[in-house]
């Protein structure tokens, strides 16, 4: 019988998944510890993590709803704040999760130096805890907006967790690519932050697909976050679905990043411990 030997990179990618399943208790423990330690000693705890998104939401709401109101007549669905909410909050979750995830190996270097812990566990736990905190905030404000009549509950809400899971996977595979690079070359952090800033404006956070000139609509379609934000808006607000091409880009991005993470880890596994 012929045996097909998977390339080392693919094996490493597969190992990432196996490790995460095998060490799920550890991942969960690290998530809990990360969350509790972040708010330990703080009286308002979790609510501080909501502060920045709320300030941004309010600021953009005022800027685009009042100051530049005439320019926003083309926001699909009619209401600016819900559309901003469905763009800003998922972006915050993406950004926070990515940043915390890629910094995890540096932040936890003392632990990694003394305990044989798979690095994927460390990265995924950090990225997931930061991401989930923002998603919990998203869910809370969704309920508040529903109670205030800002948004109307609809069937699509039942499918939002699926989008959340897809975004969580995207955040984690991106963090797995960036974390070893950041550990070895700290400039990676500056580059990643700059890319996140560009990505924010290149994603339909402050606009919708339809508001772009026809020639520019392809740009956000190549951005996996554009697809996710489109899905959030479609499911939460009943806005039009994002273009199919952007969904393809999302799936391709996740797959590509996952394989890239495997390639990087297969290449760097033996030298990463020199940097913690």
């Amino acid at each position: 019988m012929d045996v097909i030997v998977a390339p080392a990179d693919l094996r490493r990618s597969k190992l990432v998944l196996e490790t995460l399943v095998r060490k799920r208790h550890l991942v969960w423990a690290l998530i809990r510890r990360d969350v509790s330690s972040r708010f330990a000693g703080s009286r308002l705890g979790f609510f501080w993590s909501l502060l920045n998104p709320v300030i941004q939401l309010a600021s953009y709401g005022i800027i685009f709803g009042l100051i530049y109101a005439p320019a926003n007549g083309r926001v699909a669905g009619g209401s600016l704040v819900p559309a901003l909410f469905c763009g800003l909050w998922p972006w915050w979750a993406f950004s926070e999760g990515t940043i915390r995830g890629y910094a995890a190996l540096v932040d936890q270097s003392a632990l990694l130096k003394r305990f044989p812990m798979p690095i994927e566990v460390c990265v995924v736990a950090a990225a997931t805890s930061a991401f989930l905190l923002q998603i919990v905030g998203f869910a809370l404000f969704l309920i508040v907006f529903a109670l205030l009549g800002v948004v109307s509950p609809q069937m699509g809400w039942w499918f939002v967790p699926g989008v959340v899971v897809a975004q969580l996977v995207l955040v984690n595979v991106l963090a797995l690519v960036l974390a070893p690079l950041y550990l070895v070359v700290r400039d990676t952090g500056y580059v990643a932050n700059a890319c996140l800033t560009i990505g924010f404006f290149a994603s339909p956070v402050l606009f919708v697909f339809d508001s772009l000139p026809a020639g520019l609509r392809v740009v956000p379609m190549l951005n996996p976050m554009a697809s996710l934000i489109g899905l959030y808006r479609a499911l939460v607000l009943g806005q039009p679905w994002p273009p199919v091409i952007s969904l393809v880009v999302l799936v391709a991005s996740i797959t590509g990043l996952f394989l890239l993470a495997g390639r990087l880890l297969a290449r760097l596994d033996g030298v990463l411990d020199e940097y913690w």
């Binding site: 550890l26 509790s36 330690s37 330990a40 003394r114």
Partner: peptide, 20 residues
């Protein structure tokens, strides 16, 4: 190493048992 100063001995011990 890895103990969190603001958590109790019990909480840290639980986490350490999971971790180690």
């Amino acid at each position: 190493v890895g103990f969190h100063p603001l958590e109790t001995g019990r909480e840290n011990a639980e986490t350490a048992l999971i971790l180690q």
